[in-house]
Amino acid sequence: MAAAAAAGAGPEMVRGQVFDVGPRYTNLSYIGEGAYGMVCSAYDNVNKVRVAIKKISPFEHQTYCQRTLREIKILLRFRHENIIGINDIIRAPTIEQMKDVYIVQDLMETDLYKLLKTQHLSNDHICYFLYQILRGLKYIHSANVLHRDLKPSNLLLNTTCDLKICDFGLARVADPDHDHTGFLTEYVATRWYRAPEIMLNSKGYTKSIDIWSVGCILAEMLSNRPIFPGKHYLDQLNHILGILGSPSQEDLNCIINLKARNYLLSLPHKNKVPWNRLFPNADSKALDLLDKMLTFNPHKRIEVEQALAHPYLEQYYDPSDEPIAEAPFKFDMELDDLPKEKLKELIFEETARFQPGYRS
């Protein structure tokens, strides 16, 4: 834990890192770190609560700039109880001085990944967590956004079992017609939660990839272990087919990539493993919904509104309290091709509203 900075004593240090967030945020305490930044909790002297502050230093890398800009653009436009918001952003007053960006968010005690390492969940908890994931996802999908990296560590939890989806750095506007060349190379989302079509096709992607990830998360809540822990690309596919069985001819016809289709045709026939054999203690309604989410063919996979209306979630289902976005989200430009200098300018502009004396 960093010592509390005395008023006016300059930035606090946390594990050798400068955290320049005073005077409003003090009493910093280390939480963890990701690929390009550290997260601390801090005391907000204005709202009198502890908050989470993520320090991001992305400006050396085009990919990190892209992810940072995506996350900020999306989260500043989203407003939903099951999606983490941005409360404040701290950065230098000029673009030349801006080396880091500090993002202030609600402090959540833990995440689903940490929880599943230590606790076996009751059916009631599984049901409530799944409902909140789908409630947040309904809003995301209504904005025409794909999260693309749903996994237990991106689901934040607090002691009252509130759940918030975080990390929109890989999110995209849904565009089933656009052929994202190089899709697989830039697709760094965790393999275990990846839909089979991501490994088999490169053309376009749809909201059904997020539903697949939610199915993987439900299976993990039922058993405290990942359902498809593939060691590499082909191993991942083999794990999936080992449980779902061989795809039907109709399902194979959806695979545009001939090499991928021929690979699947070359494999020995596998039978589907019954879900109640894998999860003998699970609620039968939970397994019915799991089956509809972990469907090989993305066109037959359940959609988020149908999933919310499934009998497993009937005690929570309330369409009048499951809000959607006001308007579909649009990125003005494809960020993939922009140089990091341009992305830095866009991050600077996007964060201006939090600067003292800002006038829109």
Rank of each mutant, 00 (worst) to 15 (best):
L76K: 07
I211D: 11
I89S: 06
K73I: 14
Q66P: 12
L237K: 03
E71P: 13
C127S: 15
W192E: 06
R77E: 00
V49D: 09
P298M: 03
A352R: 10
M293P: 04
L222G: 09
D318A: 14
D167N: 15
Y312L: 11
R301C: 10
I217E: 06
K330G: 08
E326K: 14
I90D: 00
P280R: 07
E197L: 08
Y316M: 03
T185L: 03
G22V: 15
S266F: 07
N27R: 10
L234R: 09
I133V: 02
H232W: 03
E96A: 12
A6M: 13
I126Q: 11
Y102R: 05
M199N: 05
G136L: 08
E81C: 03
G215Q: 08
F279I: 15
F59A: 14
T68H: 13
T68G: 13
V101Y: 10
F354N: 09
P274F: 00
E303T: 04
C40M: 05
T160V: 04
I126P: 08
Y131R: 03
P328I: 01
A282I: 02
I209C: 10
R172W: 03
Q62F: 06
E71V: 13
I31M: 06
R172N: 05
L115R: 00
H239I: 09
L76Q: 14
I72E: 01
Q66Y: 12
E33V: 13
P196I: 01
A352I: 06
R91Q: 01
G169N: 13
P176H: 11
D175E: 12
K48V: 10
F19A: 09
I72K: 08
G85E: 06
E109S: 05
V46F: 12
S360V: 08
I126T: 00
H299L: 15
L107N: 02
T206Y: 10
V18S: 04
W275L: 15
I72F: 13
T181F: 04
D167K: 07
F183A: 01
K54I: 13
R172G: 11
K292H: 03
D332V: 14
P93M: 03
V21M: 13
R277M: 09
S213Q: 07
A189Y: 01
T185E: 10
I72H: 05
R359L: 11
D20F: 08
E71H: 05
Y36G: 15
A4F: 00
I133S: 08
I72C: 02
R70V: 05
S153V: 06
I347D: 06
A286F: 03
L134K: 09
V145H: 02
A195Y: 02
S320W: 02
Y43I: 08
Q132I: 10
Y205I: 07
P311V: 00
A219R: 10
V304T: 05
M199Y: 04
I302R: 11
E341L: 05
E96R: 03
E71L: 11
E250C: 08
K114V: 09
E326R: 00
L76M: 13
L222T: 05
L278I: 11
N87Q: 01
K285G: 11
I324W: 09
K117W: 03
R79D: 07
L289H: 01
V214T: 11
L234C: 06
T118F: 09
N271C: 09
V39S: 03
K340W: 02
K259H: 10
K292E: 12
A143P: 06
I53N: 14
E220C: 05
N123A: 08
L76I: 03
Y128K: 05
G169C: 15
D332K: 12
D100Q: 11
D177M: 04
R277K: 14
E186P: 06
G357C: 14
Q97V: 09
A307V: 10
H125L: 14
L115V: 12
I243H: 09
G230V: 14
P23E: 00
Q105L: 14
F129M: 03
S142H: 06
L170M: 14
L244A: 01
E314K: 14
S223P: 07
F228C: 00
G245K: 05
H125P: 00
K300T: 09
I133C: 10
A6W: 06
N297K: 12
N238K: 13
I95D: 02
I95M: 10
T118H: 04
S246F: 05
A219Y: 12
Q97E: 14
T159R: 02
I255G: 04
S223H: 03
L258R: 00
D88A: 11
P323N: 01
N257M: 08
A52H: 03
E12M: 00
R261P: 06
S202A: 12
F228M: 02
M199Q: 03
L28E: 03
I256G: 06
L338K: 10
L155T: 03
K54Y: 02
A325E: 14
I72P: 00
A5D: 12
I74T: 00
I95F: 15
Y193R: 10
E341D: 15
R194Y: 05
V46E: 08
R225Y: 01
L116E: 11
L278N: 03
G85V: 14
R70Q: 03
L130T: 05
C216S: 15
K55E: 14
Q315R: 12
G169Y: 08
G215C: 06
L265I: 06
I103Y: 15
Q105A: 11
F296A: 03
M108V: 00
Y25C: 00
L156T: 01
I302F: 15
K73Y: 12
D124R: 02
L28V: 06
F183E: 06
D336T: 10
Y193I: 12
K330L: 10
L237E: 08
A219N: 06
Y64I: 15
P319H: 08
T351P: 13
R194P: 04
Y187L: 05
A35P: 07
S246I: 13
K164S: 08
P298T: 14
I243C: 09
V39D: 02
K330P: 10
A307N: 02
S213P: 04
V49T: 09
R67H: 12
R359D: 10
K114E: 00
V104I: 12
R24L: 14
H178R: 12
E303Y: 05
L116D: 06
K231Q: 07
H180P: 09
D100K: 02
G37P: 11
L116H: 07
H61E: 10
I198F: 15
H125K: 06
D288P: 01
Q119K: 12
P319F: 02
G182F: 09
M108D: 08
M98V: 01
R67C: 07
Y205G: 08
H141G: 02
I89N: 13
Q132E: 15
E250S: 03
C161E: 11
Y316S: 00
N238M: 07
L287S: 11
I83K: 05
L137V: 03
L338C: 08
C161N: 04
Y263S: 04
Q66T: 08
R50I: 03
T26C: 11
P323H: 13
L290G: 06
T181C: 09
H147R: 04
N276V: 08
Q97C: 05
K203S: 10
S29W: 03
Y102N: 14
Q66S: 13
P298K: 03
N253M: 10
E314F: 01
K340D: 02
M199W: 05
R277Q: 09
N158T: 13
G32L: 00
S41K: 06
N154E: 08
H120D: 06
E220A: 11
E197V: 14
S41R: 04
R148L: 14
G32M: 01
